[in-house]
Design a protein around this nucleic acid. Structure first.
Lengths: 337, 337
DNA sequence: GAACAGAATTGAAAGGTTTCAATCTCGAAC
DNA sequence: GTTCGAGATTGAAACCTTTCAATTCTGTTC
């Protein structure tokens, strides 16, 4: 297969000039119906495929948006991606997804490549939102929007959900239901989300006049189902009178693992252990003991982020904005007997 | 921001020729340490970002692989993607993900763009494996490998799992456990997977001497949690003596929805309704009644597909191969009381 | 039949990188 | 002091498309 005929070959085959072929491609109305017909046939015969590199080199711009996901296997992020996709489609851009799998190195490799590809904009849920490599990409001219994180300085657009508030909601809900010993399960401790939710939890806890010692943190290494199960074992190992009566998990993956392990150990949910998750992914509601969870507007998050990056890419008067959405507690069977 | 300095600017700034800058980029050993140093500094100062379009235009090849997923929100596919990613990384290629969201149009749009981008190869789980647009892409020279599907003729490499066998395993397992009335739940009926699993189920059922009327098909519109719930309602509506004692679901999403709905309707699992899912996604084991499921080697599927496409891209003697993996039934609580 | 307008087509330049043959620079060997 | 060779650097061509000013063609009007 002589890989790929060029515009020149098509022109020769159709007996027209190369400029005409280009016109057929880009301004079909400028060219008479029968030449157009002839050119199109030649393209089909030769299996012509427009060379996007050359197009882009000349035109200077690409028609794609990119989202660098933190963890493609977490449904939360695929829902965010879905929202981005919707907005991208509406703007007639295509979306490519990259997965950093929680690795800063992979993230940087992806960013570098996307930058070289001159994508219109990059959306990213970074491993570390304060990483300098994000600044550099932005400084060199590619619009960057941080998704589901924020950073202290306001040097980027970002779209996130108020995690401190989310933590507060979860704890208020549990205290309302009479729980007096609660575990917070999640990690790694450095992770922004994990910290904010913990902070919110603590704030609510002490605002309600509870002794700090009764809200304990059970760290995990990552936010996964397996880690949730593992935490469940640790809980099950505690003597019943010292065991918390409720757990607030930093995300639903952890909560689902915990739920599974608890039931497997004969701990009744919610009677002996109430569980609150975070994200409200679809599988949370679908768990056999449907999970109470702090819902984030996942698709909206993505859609908004896409709109911000497009604004930055096209609007000269763009100014950075930090959008913060409000989470909402969805009560289900895992906390309400 | 004067978007992007070129190699020429760098050359001028560093006081060297443009060829030398290119050498620094591509064959750093060919250039003396102090010029290299000088060039690198100039690059940093100017915020130089190599223009991938120009590179690719000249070099003719890109360093990326693409996977067009059928449904990014199904963990099965993200696991496959993970496997592809692993192989791509090993070959020093980067992977971009596209999501067709079950739409043939979107799939075609993605394919066209990827072809124009001259990606090294395309992996795709197609909406319809017999679609002619796949042939055209392949005919024009981009290696295409079909993932998790096969087509009748052998015009592509493909990597799939023996779905007929999978269906057989599920039914044999249920019959072994004494079930005599079983429902098969899944759809749309035209979908390859859905059909093959159903066929396997029927084969096993009659091979075991059961009357065909006792294996009923409950079609759904798509394979989702919501549809599973909906099917659950239909089942719950049946009078207990006519209700099947077991359900075999075309995938785990459906099975999880069914499980949830069953429990919500007070049907005990597995005592009153045994459930077998398909795919063995992580959430299957994590369900509060852990789900018996037909496991597919998801990551291996992806890895193998990536290897095939790489072979096709680089090896002149490449011949198409149809790899068929063997599924395996994982028995859990949803069928074993 | 000449002049003209408008539509269709053409040709050349430009865009940023890589490649490769050609040139240059040094120091070593005689 | 000359020659040689290795290593470093250079310059121009090539990759394929798009754009735009210039040219040709067609048909109308007076």
């Amino acid at each position: 297969m002589a890989r790929s005929a060029s515009v020149k070959d098509v022109a020769a085959a159709a007996g027209v000039s190369l400029g005409t072929v280009s016109n057929v491609l880009n301004r079909p109305d400028r060219v008479s119906p029968d030449t157009r017909e002839r050119v199109l046939r030649a393209m089909a015969d030769l299996g012509f495929v427009r060379n996007e590199s050359a197009r882009q080199l000349r035109a200077g711009s690409s028609r794609t948006l990119a989202y660098v996901m933190l963890d493609a296997s977490n449904p939360f992020f695929t829902d965010v991606a879905q929202g981005i996709d919707t907005a991208a489609e509406a703007a007639d851009l295509s979306l490519v997804l990259c997965n950093s799998r929680n690795s800063g190195d992979r993230e940087q490799a992806h960013l570098a490549l996307l930058e070289q590809q001159r994508v219109q904009g990059i959306l990213v849920t970074p491993v570390d939102p304060d990483s300098a490599s994000l600044d550099e990409v932005a400084r060199r001219g590619t619009p960057v929007v941080v998704v589901d994180r924020t950073r202290a300085d306001q040097s980027f657009c970002s779209v996130a959900v108020d995690d401190v508030l989310g933590g507060r909601l979860a704890i208020e809900h549990l205290v309302e239901r009479g729980h007096t010993r609660v575990a917070y399960i999640g990690g790694p401790p450095g992770l922004g989300q994990v910290e904010d939710r913990w902070r919110g939890a603590q704030e609510a806890w002490s605002a309600l006049g509870r002794p700090g010692a009764d809200l304990v943190q059970l760290p995990t290494t990552v936010l996964s189902v397996a880690e949730g199960r593992e935490a469940g074992q640790r809980l099950a190992g505690l003597p019943a009178r010292r065991r918390p009566t409720a757990a607030f998990c930093a995300n639903d993956l952890v909560a689902l693992g915990l739920l599974q392990q608890a039931i497997g150990s004969g701990i009744r949910v919610p009677e002996e252990l109430a569980i609150v998750g975070y994200d409200d992914i679809e599988f949370a509601a679908a768990a056999a003991v449907p999970l109470t969870s702090v819902r984030q507007p996942r698709q909206l998050l993505g859609r908004t982020a896409a709109e911000l990056v497009l604004d930055e890419a096209t609007n000269a008067e763009h100014t950075h904005r930090q959008v913060l959405f409000t989470p909402e507690l969805v009560a289900r069977a895992s906390t309400t007997s």
